[in-house]
């Protein structure tokens, strides 16, 4: 287990480097929320989920829905790393004609299940997939990653009501609680706390973890698989911008990308000492 945790932690570090480089190149996109979610995304794509990059529509795959679609770069770097498409494609993010749209688009990106980006809609779609998989008697599981700011959307709670009603124990939601949204602290903009109690009251199994502690993430995902009769939500405390010291816990880095000046410093924070002159071009 220790080796696995170590390997995944290292993988997440390298994916953070990919996120920073990708967003530096695109000069547009969401840095903070991509970095807060990447440990969980790494655990899912490189440990927990059964999926086939060479066969994206394999019927028995586990499904992943990035409800907080603005963290698309975090999903894209994981998909590229897994082999769904070449890593070079990351450098086309948000460009005209790219298959890597600003927010996840199932029409054009292999490995993306549905279209998200308008907050609050993903969990409903994850529910629908979980219902279909149950109807078909498949053992596949559905993972849905939400943001804490996203919980302000009323549709999330419609979906949160429906998932236990239909006993969707093949569904695991993860809430990336980085505590910040565009206009500032979630608690000040529109408080969503207590998140765990709310889901508990709606009938979910609730697990609370540090979303950057890889061992804890893996443990929670394993545990979720054993909990039956209702869906499980993993409420994960995270740090927005995690891994790049000067991005951390800053709402101002929600939708801001690393500048040419920031790039070498950001990569240094991630233990990456590449020749940035080449990257900056």
């Amino acid at each position: 287990m220790n080796d696995t945790v170590q390997a995944l932690t290292e993988k997440a570090r390298r994916l953070r480097v990919d996120i920073v480089k990708t967003l530096h190149r695109s000069r547009s996109g969401h840095t903070g929320g991509s970095l807060s979610a990447i440990d969980m995304i790494t655990a899912l794509y490189f440990h927990k989920m059964r999926h086939r990059p060479e066969e994206p529509s394999w019927p028995d795959r586990d499904r992943f829905v990035l409800c907080k679609g603005h963290a698309a770069p975090a999903q894209y770097v994981a998909l590229a790393e897994a082999g769904y498409f070449p890593k070079e494609d990351l450098m086309t993010l948000r460009r005209l004609g790219s298959h890597l749209q600003g927010h996840p688009d199932s029409k054009v990106t292999p490995g993306v299940e549905v279209c998200t980006g308008s907050l609050g809609q993903g969990l409903s779609m994850a529910n629908g997939m979980a219902m279909a998989l149950k109807l078909d008697g498949r053992a596949s599981r559905v993972y849905a990653l939400l943001g804490d700011g996203e919980l302000q959307e009323g549709q999330v709670w419609e979906a949160a009501m429906a998932a236990p009603h239909y006993r969707l124990d093949n569904l695991c939601a993860l809430v990336d609680c980085n505590g910040l949204q565009i206009d500032g602290e979630v608690a000040k903009v529109m408080n969503v706390a207590p998140v765990a109690d709310k889901f508990r009251a709606f009938g979910w199994h609730v697990l609370e973890i540090d979303g950057h502690d890889m061992a804890a993430v893996l443990q929670a995902l394993d545990r979720a698989e054993t909990l039956t009769g209702a869906p499980t939500v993993v409420v994960a405390r995270t740090v927005k911008g995690k891994g790049v010291a000067f991005f951390e816990n800053k709402a101002s880095y929600h939708g801001v990308t690393p500048s040419d000046e920031e790039l070498p410093r950001a990569l240094e924070c991630l233990g990456c000492f590449e020749d940035c002159e080449k990257i900056v071009d």
Partner: peptide
């Protein structure tokens, strides 16, 4: 078994239908 009453929550109903379609159903 193939009918889902989603209650008085239309937004979730349409989203759920999209998820069912994504998994191969004709909702």
């Amino acid at each position: 078994e193939r009918f889902f009453n989603m209650g008085i929550a239309e937004a979730n109903m349409i989203g759920t239908a999209a998820g069912l379609a994504a998994a191969g159903k004709i909702p």
